[in-house]
Simulated scan of single mutants.
Amino acid sequence: MNLQLQNKAVFVTGGTKGIGRAIAEAFYKEGARVVVSARTKEGLESWYEEISIVTGDLTKEAERERVFAEVTSHFGAIDILINNVGGSNGAAIAETPLALFHEAFELNFFSAVHFSKLVLPQMKKVGAGVIVNISSIFGRESGGKATYNSAKAALISFTKSLADEVARDGIRVNGVAPGAILHPTGNWQKRLEEDPEKINTFVDEQIPGGRFGTPEEIANVVLFLASPQARWFMGATVNVDGGQSKGNF
């Protein structure tokens, strides 16, 4: 299947590790022009020279605006925005300071809202564009930290709301909700190293597919949703989880 992504300008937030990195590499291999954001370039000296990296703290509004200005000065208009940056913090709700809820929403939710608003004027001008938001199955059901769950739930709702608003402008907005994904820099890898028996039991009991997912399996779905082959997908957030989610939707 030809995904028709050659020469598309793609911006991936949080694109140098884990799922974001797999997404960036997959677009690059499809012939797209790719730029990613990251907190730092440390450890990326041997990465693809053709994938540009813009550093910044995406929890801060001013930093997001600066990063976007750098990205567009390098690329011009963005054809495809992948709002991937995210992370988990806090503990039990009663023990988590309100500031950590604000921080989680800035990273997982408001960054996606902000970058979406920044790309919309140009996408509307040309009558085309794609936004894909990376949420989580825990945005639909409890499983992770409450700060993370809440922000990802908001992102799923935002995805549908924005999709309905801009569909007639030629812009498609969708989401992907990963389940438990194993990669070297992720929390599941740390937990597996700390207590292999517990984590292997979790996989056996909670993931019908019988294993963790891979970042590449998420990237494959993102590429499809970003391609013209998925042009009738609008406002959907697709679970990619090996059956892990308890929901039947």
Rank of each mutant, 00 (worst) to 15 (best):
T16N: 13
A167Y: 08
Y48I: 02
T96Y: 04
E217R: 13
F68C: 06
E25Y: 06
K8R: 15
R231G: 08
Q244D: 07
E165P: 01
N133E: 08
L44H: 08
T201W: 01
N84D: 12
E30C: 04
S135V: 06
E61S: 07
R140L: 13
L155I: 07
I53Y: 05
V119W: 00
A24S: 14
K145M: 09
L3V: 02
E70N: 06
V132Q: 05
G18P: 11
G209D: 12
A9F: 12
F101L: 04
I51E: 07
K198N: 12
R168F: 14
G144Y: 07
F110A: 00
A151T: 07
L107S: 01
A94W: 13
V36H: 02
A180D: 15
I137S: 04
E45K: 04
P178T: 12
G213A: 13
N84P: 09
I207P: 09
M234I: 15
E63N: 08
H102D: 11
F224I: 13
A219E: 09
R172F: 11
N89M: 08
V12S: 04
I134M: 04
F212E: 11
N174Q: 04
G127M: 05
V238C: 02
I134R: 04
F202T: 03
P228Y: 07
A230G: 12
H114T: 15
G235K: 06
V71P: 03
G186F: 08
V132W: 08
F110R: 00
E70M: 04
A153R: 06
A92E: 14
F158C: 06
E103V: 01
R211G: 05
R33N: 08
V240C: 10
G139D: 07
P208I: 14
P208G: 12
A69W: 01
L44I: 00
G143S: 11
P184S: 09
D169M: 02
L120G: 06
E141W: 03
I93C: 10
R211W: 10
K17F: 05
V36T: 05
G31W: 03
E193A: 12
N200F: 07
F158H: 11
A167R: 14
L225N: 13
Y28C: 04
L98A: 13
A151N: 06
L3R: 12
P121M: 01
F158A: 09
L98G: 00
L58P: 05
F233Q: 06
D204E: 15
V222M: 07
E197A: 15
T159P: 09
I82C: 06
E106L: 00
E45H: 02
F212Q: 14
H74M: 10
V113T: 01
A226T: 07
S52R: 10
A26N: 11
T13H: 09
S136E: 13
S37F: 01
A22D: 14
A151K: 04
E70T: 01
K41P: 00
K246Y: 09
F110Q: 01
A146R: 05
K160T: 13
V10C: 12
E141V: 12
A112Q: 02
F11K: 06
E25P: 00
G143E: 10
T59Y: 00
G242P: 07
H183D: 14
R211F: 13
E49C: 02
N187Y: 03
A69Y: 03
S73R: 14
E95R: 12
T237P: 06
V173P: 02
A151M: 07
N220R: 15
S161C: 12
